[in-house]
Design a protein around this nucleic acid. Structure first.
Lengths: 348, 348
DNA sequence: ATTCTCCGTGGTAACGTTCCCACGAGTTCA
DNA sequence: TGAACTCGTGGGAACGTTACCACGGAGAAT
């Protein structure tokens, strides 16, 4: 049934020119007379010509295909990244092949192979591999994204600016009167944790706060991890209002659950600040105040960097995208309760 | 720097056979001696050969590329669908080109064109187009997904089984003693609304409930839409515990907000049942009891159907995937309060 | 012994495009 | 006036693979 699709030769014949001229006219080359170009374009419209990207890729080596390898498209943060990358790619006439690696080495390797076989022009990768060899073998231009990219300083990568994010969170906490926030961190093995903690310490020192005196708990980057960490936090001795800076929104939401289970209220008794900006934070009660990572912008910027890499203009550096604060209801303002070192209990 | 990638000719030369034999061995054809196959495979491994999918597509007409056009990858339901499709495609050695249409005709058209130019083998589409022409012009095998696919009964499509979903929800409501639930529906223009309402009526009749007597409100499929619908519902006269079946999780979460704002409690005063199964429902307080659509399974099944279409075995029918109930905390059990027609107020 | 069939193999064409080179006409410069 | 140069054009090769056909040897059937 499906009729043979018109080729550039059909267009050339119809326009009464050679296929070379037709090709030049269609690809927008300059050395064609306006009259010839007009005729070719008209003929192309008439026969319903659509360029065969396969043939173009075969001959020119450029496929207009980009790869995106992320842990899980189901994770809202990565979905945002994918969306940004997709839109930017589309603006440049490129299409995105999306793969989920599930933090699995084997999957990642097989996805990278699929990308090579598809002859993509380049790829954006959140690497699960910890050795550089696997990436080196990739053999195509690539840009790394996410915090794990920090393990590969020699490659260009795009991530969120954790230092600025922590500053943003601390500024907000302090402006609301929380001068000694507790911390809920991710597992010790994760690279993001170290960076978070380091910049946190720097900001404490800047503000004359002794970081060693602040309560700190850790757990998995999940709701349950946050819940149990918060339970341990609540068992410690403390006076008055408790403020918590969680390193991840899911943990923050888990912490909120723990607060409720302990018969306390958020934000009246406990203030919670999250980190990530997942949509679910908008639907909790109270809404989660959080420092949001710019997922979409990271995707957009990664594509820009990738095009640079493909064009042979490697930046070979890490790009940091600024985070922003989303204020919802999980933080109480205790700055009026007492000038410094809030000690009284939460407001009714 | 980047060395020329080895071709099948390099492999053939190394193995001491013709490229025809090498091609047969590599593509797993049967008419090759074991000895020759062995030599070819060994040679391929030695030179690091990786098949060029472009050339294969060019010659054989099969690219191993599938298209997925959904409204928005950022929407958790569609992300689930994408993930399912991606995994199933990978199992069959295919890769997925993902596009977001934002319910925009122009975007959809341009994405479909990109898919044609990339010579994908077929596509999975959630159509925003309401006329068949746009899809007919697509010219490649495709499978429709989502409720809007019902407008095209002549094409094969995969969606969730709304009739079964409504039954599931009603059974659950009734089992908890809610014999006269109110309804929060989507906009009148949406096709899913009609189907939802129709099956709801059928189940009411089966259970001797007069559907006309039940309160009903509608609004946009958003948190705000659900909130205002719930406000209107709460302004109506009523006695005792109120149960609400929302046609969408976001609306259900919005309804929950409205309940809290009215000084009432969920589930003590108002029970809420959602529909979709978005992750955010797990983080609300109380957790949202909901009928979950099988997003992932829809993606998986759509790929299966698409392969059938590509192979020329068109099913030309709609596949309905069963939904499942996720019980969290937003539904009170009032079946013990009073045998039928619960009238007393919520438990303290 | 001869013919027929089967099977593994190799050579060649084809997929649709872009790249490269050569050609002729017009223009500029010596 | 002839040489050198520019510019639009056309022809052919090339990208890497699979489809197709022809060939030769081994074994079966006559």
């Amino acid at each position: 049934m499906q009729r043979r699709r018109p080729t550039i030769i059909d267009v050339a014949r119809k326009a009464g020119v050679s296929k070379s001229t037709a090709g030049r006219a269609l690809s927008g080359a300059s050395n064609v007379t306006d009259e010839a170009r007009e005729r070719v374009l008209e003929a192309a419209r008439a026969v319903g010509y659509e360029r065969n990207d396969l043939a173009v890729g075969m001959r020119s080596g450029r496929t207009g295909l980009l790869g995106l390898v992320i842990p899980d498209i189901t994770n809202p943060f990565w979905a945002e990244v994918a969306r940004g990358a997709q839109d930017r790619a589309a603006e440049n006439g490129a299409s995105l092949l999306v793969f989920s690696s599930d933090w699995d080495h084997g999957r990642e390797a097989s996805h990278l192979r699929a990308l090579r076989q598809a002859r993509v022009d380049g790829a954006i990768i959140n690497p699960v591999a910890d050795s550089f060899d696997d990436l080196d073998r990739f053999g195509l231009p690539f840009v790394l994204i996410g915090s794990s990219a920090e393990r590969f300083p020699a490659n260009s990568s795009v991530g969120s600016d954790i230092a600025q994010a922590v500053r943003l969170g601390m500024d907000h906490l302090v402006s609301k009167g929380h001068h000694a926030p507790a911390l809920i961190l991710g597992p010790k093995s994760r690279i993001a944790r170290a960076r978070f903690l380091r910049t946190f310490h720097e900001h404490c020192v800047e503000r004359d706060i002794d970081p060693a005196a602040l309560p700190m708990e850790d757990g998995e980057y999940t709701v349950e991890g946050g819940r149990t960490a918060m339970m341990r936090l609540l068992q410690r001795d403390r006076v008055g209002h408790l403020a918590v800076f969680a390193a991840n929104d899911l943990m923050a939401l888990g912490a909120m659950v723990a607060v409720r289970e302990a018969g306390l209220r958020c934000p009246e008794d406990v203030s919670i600040l999250g980190f990530d900006g997942i949509p679910a934070g908008a639907f909790s009660w109270p809404g989660l105040t959080t420092v949001a990572k710019p997922g979409r912008e990271i995707g957009v910027r990664a594509v820009d960097c990738l095009f640079d890499e493909i064009a042979g203009r490697p930046e070979h550096g890490r790009v940091f995208m600024p985070c922003r604060l989303i204020e919802r209801g999980s933080l109480a303002d205790v700055s009026l309760d007492q000038p410094r070192r809030a000690a009284s209990s939460g407001r009714g």
